[in-house]
Design a protein around this nucleic acid. Structure first.
Lengths: 182, 182
DNA sequence: TTCCCGATATATCGAACCGATATATAAACG
DNA sequence: CGTTTATATATCGGTTCGATATATCGGGAA
């Protein structure tokens, strides 16, 4: 079997403990891994088919009323595949931050407007911080500690990033002041 | 005109001060914005054509010896477009971290192996930290302070992330120890 | 009780994007 | 002189994103 995409493992991970529909998986992703690994319907549904054909998950009909619904659960092969993946060193790390990109080219703006970029970035990071806090409060005591560790990492990261924006903002205002008075 | 992609603005930003070829732009990206905004040839060359057709940049032949070469520079319209973009609040922020994803599902592994994920992550962040340090040392005194601010942000981020991995590693080892002795 | 809205569920499509690769010529180097 | 490395442009398959289409269900308002 050609190797699976990381998104395939997201699915394997979420169907590991109880059967889930594609829709449920999407909702779970949006409430947890979205901040460091997103997935769209356009990935999830075809991936469910592929994993099913490969025998790593099995689907069963589980309609609600008259509406079709297929839930999937993991197989022994799927569990083995998931664990094998977890044991390999992580590869992909990507970031796309339009804010940093604008800051990079901010010399094209007058200083006062360049500072605005940092203010926007900071506001955005704080907003995400609050979203994560809201998620944190929802979760009670769970035996699996890892989702919470990752969530708290997200909280610390957004906090750090917001602080950095604040510090850089102050620094820019300082040098702008020096330039005017020097 | 339909709105441009952020990658289009990367190009506008890099041809702003002096004429650049597609190849040069790619090299510049790889040495600077790659960490928060990457771009491939498959984006750059078609984008150069589009921007040229839109009148935001102009190309001129600038062969080296017998080899064809087209360098592009920004037009007044292009400058205006770039500045207008810089004034809008940044939108895109994305992260894909396979390490965090594995950590999220690490409950499927025995604790000692889960710790390995954090060790890999930390090693990777430190390696990137060193890459950024190497870039930092290359740059002398330049009048435009923004690329250096962003670079130092990258240094601080990789440092923070590596430290976080180290702390979480210690925490996991602690609780694993407690479980064994409790 | 009927109607509408939001949630559930699945599927698809275009655009963007990545990474690899093909094809040249130029310069560098032993 | 031949080989490698850098410059330069172009393309192609596969992945992913975001938006949207379709349809049914449940709940609340008129």
């Amino acid at each position: 079997m050609e190797q699976l995409s990381p998104t395939a493992y997201v699915i394997l991970g979420f169907v590991r403990n109880e059967p889930r529909s594609g829709y449920e998986i999407k909702a779970l992703v949006d409430n947890s891994t979205r901040f460091f690994w997103a997935a769209s319907y356009g990935q999830i549904y075809p991936e469910l088919k592929r994993l099913s054909e490969a025998g790593l998950i099995v689907g069963s009909d589980s309609p609600t009323g008259g509406r079709k619904r297929t839930v999937y659960e993991i197989t022994a092969d799927g569990e083995a595949e998931l664990r094998a993946w977890l044991r390999q060193a992580p590869e992909t790390f990507e970031m796309r931050d339009e804010g940093l990109l604008k800051l990079f080219f901010a010399d094209a703006l007058p200083r006062e407007e360049a500072v605005e970029i940092l203010r926007s970035m900071r506001a955005k990071r704080l907003a995400v911080h609050q979203q994560l806090q809201a998620i944190e409060e929802l979760k009670g005591e769970i035996e699996d500690p890892f989702p919470m560790i990752v969530l708290q990492g997200g909280l610390e990261f957004t906090r750090w990033f917001a602080d950095w924006c604040e510090r850089m903002e102050a620094r820019l205002l300082d040098t702008a002041h020096e330039e005017r008075s020097g």
